[in-house]
Nucleic acid binder design. Structure first.
Length: 298
DNA sequence: CGTATTTGACCCGCGC
DNA sequence: GCGCGGGTCAAATACG
């Protein structure tokens, strides 16, 4: 089983976090669950648990408890829907967006203030920190993700990979994956925006296939000699840049989905991680199997 | 040929 | 206004 911490960042003012944690409030991400492989959506934490988690890691709980934990919290997850609005980057006039709810239904055309929508900072973010590297396979969600970028991140020796939803054209869902610089065994996955479509029943023809890493160096005309490794690891990436004033910390124990089967193995690298881009980490990140993590039978 | 990945360039928000 | 850093674009390339 997998234990992960889920941090939801919604449109809330400073101080809301405490209120939420103390008051057992729900995050308002009514449909966050679909990004976790059809998993159940947000749930509310007991007061002491939430506080505990916000400060430090928590010991694990039993797998079967999770399902029971979720049930009582489902109803609250249909509230505060407007907090979960995705923000289309380029849609400057209409600024509406369809939202997929956890139960599969949709909530369309939720209007958000233009000024707010313009800001990337106000995009909904949901951060998931994986505890174990090998859990990445199971944690990976059922959406099809396509990598569109990778950047070295200041303060972290590990690059961040950017993925977008490839299941549907125009879907604004984004996903970032990076290794925790303080604990290389952990990965942080950040989801931005929500899918505006159902979970695909089948993926693109090549989705899920593993591309063999090219043995020969890729010819590049304008290639720089820039080294993409940056130094001096700093803060915990889970609760990132200071502006995310309002954070809901959730703990999810994610059972491995027995209906799916992982298609690849990740060789654990532990703490002896190479820092260059040809490291195992990059192979993991670059593997579509890692991104999806499931074997799809047609 | 269609789709995915790589990676330098570009864009944009933010702090100074 | 400028520089920095994060996020995205898109051409080149790889793969089935």
């Amino acid at each position: 089983m997998i234990y992960l911490y889920m941090v939801e960042m919604a449109y809330m003012e400073e101080g809301d976090l405490e209120a939420i944690v103390k008051g057992y409030s729900c995050s308002g991400d009514a449909f966050s669950g679909e990004s976790s492989g059809g998993f159940s959506p947000s749930f509310c934490l007991p007061d002491d648990t939430a506080n505990c988690l916000y400060e430090h890691e928590m010991d694990t709980t039993g797998l079967d408890e999770l399902g029971e934990l979720y049930k009582p919290f489902y109803p609250c997850c249909t509230q505060n829907l407007t907090n979960s609005v995705s923000v289309p980057k380029d849609d400057k006039k209409q600024l509406t967006h369809g939202c997929l709810l956890a139960n599969g239904s949709r909530a369309d055309h939720i209007r958000i203030p233009e000024s707010k929508a313009k800001s990337k900072k106000n995009q909904q973010k949901r951060v998931v920190e994986l505890v174990k590297e090998d859990n990445l396979l199971s944690q990976s969600d059922a959406w099809a993700w396509r990598k569109y970028g990778q950047k070295p991140i200041k303060g972290s020796p590990y690059p961040r990979s950017y993925y977008r939803c490839s299941s549907s054209k125009g879907c604004l869902a984004r996903k970032q994956v990076e290794r925790n610089p303080q604990n290389p065994e952990k990965f942080t996955i950040t989801y931005t925006n929500e899918h505006d479509h159902e979970i695909p029943t089948r993926r693109n023809s090549l989705a899920g296939t593993t591309r063999a890493k090219s043995s020969k160096p890729k010819p590049s005309i304008t290639k720089k000699s820039e080294k993409q490794v940056v130094s001096s690891p700093t803060s915990n990436p889970v609760i990132t840049s200071g502006d995310e004033s309002s954070v809901v910390v959730q703990v999810m124990e994610v059972p491995e989905m027995s209906t799916y089967q992982t298609t690849g193995e990740i060789v654990g690298t532990g703490n002896n991680l190479p820092t260059d881009l040809s490291s195992d980490f990059d192979e993991i990140l670059n593997s579509q199997e890692f991104i999806n993590g499931y074997l799809w039978n047609y």
